[in-house]
């Protein structure tokens, strides 16, 4: 059987938040899909629901209505523990603020998602990934010894350690200057091809849009 091209999909996804008697509809029926080997950017004004959508795609949250499909499987009603397993094996995250653990070295940070799989030693792959993002000589450095761009490369390597199908990035260049942002985007583009992952990136940055294969615009919880 040919593997389905669309690796992650939202079908008519609605997300409502109940806050203080008020109901906010952050997503109002979104249909979205991403394929292996493509980079999709999600753009839109602040508060339009971009992060909410990324949380659903990343299986960090479940929709109020609609369906989430991972590799064609309906994972909408998965328990938190089942979702954790799917995130572990299928999804990598890159955050705007890097979120590396300060007490671990670069190599250990990269290994983090597989750290508790004691049966499988990922240290070689971690070193290899760090070399591929140009940090072969920084394996034993802790995050406070790295620049912002280097930290984001470590985070990208971490996102790829478990060979995921999907890499999600929320404002990956948001904390970086233009030139550093550009090198990060070059890196993502290369890895997208090499690792054949679907990249979904949320951004304000037009620079990032240039690198994307496709762009979707979100306004008030609706895709335009």
């Amino acid at each position: 059987m040919a593997q389905p091209m669309t690796v992650i999909a939202l079908e008519n996804a609605v997300k409502r938040y109940h806050t203080g008697g008020e109901v906010i509809e952050a997503l109002a029926g979104v249909d979205f899909g991403a394929e292996r080997g493509e980079m999709v950017t999600v753009i839109g004004p602040s508060g339009s629901g971009k992060s909410t959508m990324l949380n659903l795609v990343g299986l960090l949250d479940t929709p109020s209505e609609g369906v989430v499909r991972l590799d064609g499987r309906d994972v909408t009603d998965f328990s938190e523990d089942q979702l954790t397993e799917e995130r572990r094996s299928e999804i990598g995250f890159v955050f705007q603020a890097f979120h590396l653990l300060p007490m671990l070295t670069a190599a250990e940070n990269v290994e983090l998602p597989s750290m508790w799989d004691t049966a499988r030693d990922r240290s070689d792959r971690a070193a290899d990934l760090l070399r591929r993002v140009g940090l072969g000589d920084r394996l034993d450095h802790t995050p406070d010894e790295l620049s912002g761009g280097q930290k984001q490369r470590v985070a990208i390597a971490r996102a790829l350690i478990n060979e995921p199908d999907i890499l999600l990035a929320d404002e990956p260049t948001g904390n970086l200057d233009r030139d550093t942002g550009r090198t990060i985007l070059d890196e993502l583009t290369r890895l997208k091809r090499d690792e054949n992952v679907a990249i979904v990136a949320v951004t304000h940055d037009e620079q990032l849009v240039e690198y994307a294969d496709r762009e979707v615009r979100l306004v008030d919880g609706v895709l335009q």
């Binding site: 954790t84 397993e85 995130r87 572990r88 995250f93 955050f95 653990l101 998602p113 508790w116």
Partner: peptide
């Protein structure tokens, strides 16, 4: 809290 959230997001189990 945020750091533990990152651990959980990248697939570290609750028991871990």
């Amino acid at each position: 809290r945020g750091e533990i959230g990152v651990l959980r997001a990248v697939g570290i189990r609750r028991g871990e």
